[in-house]
Design a protein around this nucleic acid. Structure first.
Length: 555
RNA sequence: GCGCUCGUAGCUCAGCUGGACAGAGCAGCGGACUUCUAAUCCGCCGGUCGCAGGUUCGAAUCCUGCCGGGCGCGCCA
């Protein structure tokens, strides 16, 4: 019996009441089931009678009384009380709640997965940092959150393709190339160039690989540094992300859109459909017609495509590859893109809702309470590599994922590097490791129940201490958490849930003895508790996997 | 000025698709280990949910206005 089953039971009770002529209302599709803070209000509660009062033309408590009468007949329901203004407080039979571990263990890693998004083909684009420097802290946030979101969406049955858009065309790349060339010539970085230590490293690697470079004419030298420098930077970015546990299915090169003629074709299509017009020698997209604040230049007056031209072609490319949803994860400094990306889709005659832009707030680094100003040009950035080095992959991922991307993150560098044990990831991982040791001990003792692979009967009614009830309720909530995380595009819900689940496990562990003490014989409760422990271990492992964080067997 | 976004405990943040007295971690104070991992558990302290209105049986949550912070408003990418 979990919240979803209970919602079905409440709905059935409503239908029964309507059939009996006791109520005259449309039975709602969604039934809210809450987990009350206090057990005095039952295991679960629903305000459905309050919501229906107006439509039914009856006092909420009268409706609640009617529904309660029918709900009491439902399997697994021990008691139903009407409380306050008309809440239905529901208490489950211990056996109905206690049956859950058996079902979780039967489902294994499948528990918490669903097919709610089956058939959806989702393109998830994130990070997409320019290959002019290492991935910095902002990119790190998307690398962690985006990857976790991909996992969560996949767990709901969606077909997800993770994509990195590689801006290897345009002026920034030219500046990058000039910066490399300047470094190779031991000249200061150009005024508008990049000056981090990595520039010197890459330049040195290129000159070592191509010792005859000084003989090249300027244009060729520039091209050499551009081509090899971008390739080197890109390899480094890929390697860093791989270390971080984030691998992309597609690394898409902006350059390819230009060379293949896709950009020209997209522009022509808009010209043909009358969505482009000429003003001041440039071609403009009439995006205001579709909700943008202003029209956008697509082809500049010098004949060169503007940045958005490639975006247009890129969108068409994604659609041609069969995606029915294109998610873009962008930083708050790019929120101005939302309207133009949707307008672009509309201009192509497509549904703007195919484009979904997730805006995440920026990450501020703080030291001693003062903001640390970062500059890519000056090379004073905290890179993803730095983060991994000081925190480790698991702690860094968890720390970045556990906050809503709606919040601007203030990360205190010293705190993070000094006392990384404060990171809740260890709390969650410790819960998993604790269970692994206990289950291993059970196996050594030859006790049944601890092995997830072996189905073992147990008496579910024995799981009736407060700590066991709480743990069962937490386990029951897991599928709903994953669904919410996917639907709302908020993987941080999974991280927060795991912290709660770990807390529930630790309380259980500290208050309820599982294995027999000393030479004592195992009891039926031993088996039931081992099943509960094994099921909890499974959900902890599944949840951590959704975050791309390891579930260690010992710590 | 216009737009987006955030404002919850000393700090960092959950809760926001409306539900019962607002939560966690950290910090502070005090307890619990000769038996399954104390990276744990238990207790105490701590908040006019930025302010003011509105909608509602019910608002941290929805709407409006104001205040404060961040970001954006290029023929840059």
């Amino acid at each position: 019996m979990n919240p979803l089953h209970l919602a079905d039971a409440v709905r059935a009770a409503l239908v029964a009441a309507v059939r009996a002529g006791e109520l005259d209302v449309q039975v709602p599709d969604e039934i809210t089931i809450d987990r009350p803070r206090s057990r005095e209000h039952g295991d679960y509660a629903t305000p459905v009678a309050l919501k229906l009062a107006k439509a039914a033309g009856l006092p909420p408590r009268a409706i609640a009384d009617t529904v309660a009468t029918h709900l009491r007949q439902a399997d697994g329901v021990a008691a139903v009380e009407v409380a306050g203004p008309g809440f239905l407080n529901i208490t489950l039979e211990a056996a109905a709640a206690g049956a859950l571990p058996g079902r979780i263990l039967a489902a294994g890693a499948g528990y918490g997965r669903s097919d709610g998004l089956k058939g959806r083909r989702i393109n998830l684009e994130f990070v997409s940092a320019n290959p002019t420097g290492p991935v910095h802290i902002g990119g790190a946030r998307w690398a962690a959150v985006g990857d976790a979101l991909g996992r969560v969406l996949s767990a709901q049955g969606a077909e997800v393709v993770r994509e990195y858009y590689f801006n290897d065309a345009g002026a920034q790349i030219d500046r990058f190339a000039r910066s490399l060339l300047a470094a190779a010539r031991h000249e200061p970085a150009p005024e508008d160039g990049y000056g981090g230590a990595y520039i010197g490293d890459i330049a040195a690697a290129i000159t070592a690989e191509h010792p005859d470079w000084p003989a090249l004419p300027d244009a060729q030298a520039s091209e050499l540094f551009r081509r090899t420098g971008v390739a080197a930077m890109f390899d480094e970015i890929k390697a860093t992300l791989h270390t971080f546990g984030t691998d992309f299915d597609v690394y898409f090169h902006e350059d390819s859109l230009h060379s293949s003629g896709a950009v020209a074709a997209a522009v022509q299509r808009l010209k043909d459909s009358g969505h482009l017009y000429v003003k001041d020698g440039a071609w403009w997209l009439a995006s205001t017609a579709y909700g943008d604040d202003k029209d956008r230049v697509v082809i500049k007056s010098d004949g060169e495509p503007a940045y958005i031209a490639a975006d247009l072609a890129y969108f068409l490319d994604k659609r041609a590859r069969g995606f029915d949803l294109c998610i873009y994860m962008l930083g708050a400094d790019h929120h101005g893109y939302v309207a133009r990306l949707k307008a672009a889709a509309a201009a192509f005659g497509d549904d703007p809702d195919v484009v979904e832009v997730l805006i995440g707030q920026l990450v501020n680094l703080v030291r001693d309470g003062a903001p640390l100003r970062m500059s890519k040009r000056a090379g004073t950035v905290i890179s993803l590599d730095d983060l991994i080095e000081s925190l480790g992959v698991d702690a860094a991922r968890f720390a970045l994922i556990r906050y809503s991307v709606d919040t601007t993150l203030d990360l205190d560098i010293d705190l993070w590097t000094r006392s990384s044990n404060d990171n809740p990831v260890f709390y969650v991982q410790y819960a998993h490791a604790r269970l692994c040791r206990m289950l291993a001990n059970a196996a050594d003792l030859g006790l049944p129940g601890g092995d997830p692979a072996v189905a073992v009967d147990y008496d579910p009614a024995l799981l009736d201490t407060p700590q066991e009830s709480e743990l069962l309720a937490l386990l029951a909530a897991y599928p709903g958490v994953v669904t919410a995380a996917a639907d709302l595009r908020e993987p941080h819900r999974v991280a927060r849930y795991l912290e709660d689940l770990a807390a529930g496990l630790h309380r259980f562990y500290d208050h309820v003895r599982v294995l027999p003490m000393g030479d004592a014989d195992p009891t039926p409760a031993t088996t039931a508790r081992l099943r509960l422990s094994a099921a909890t271990r499974q959900v902890l492992a599944s949840g951590l996997d959704l975050l791309g964080v390891s579930a260690p067997e010992r710590m």
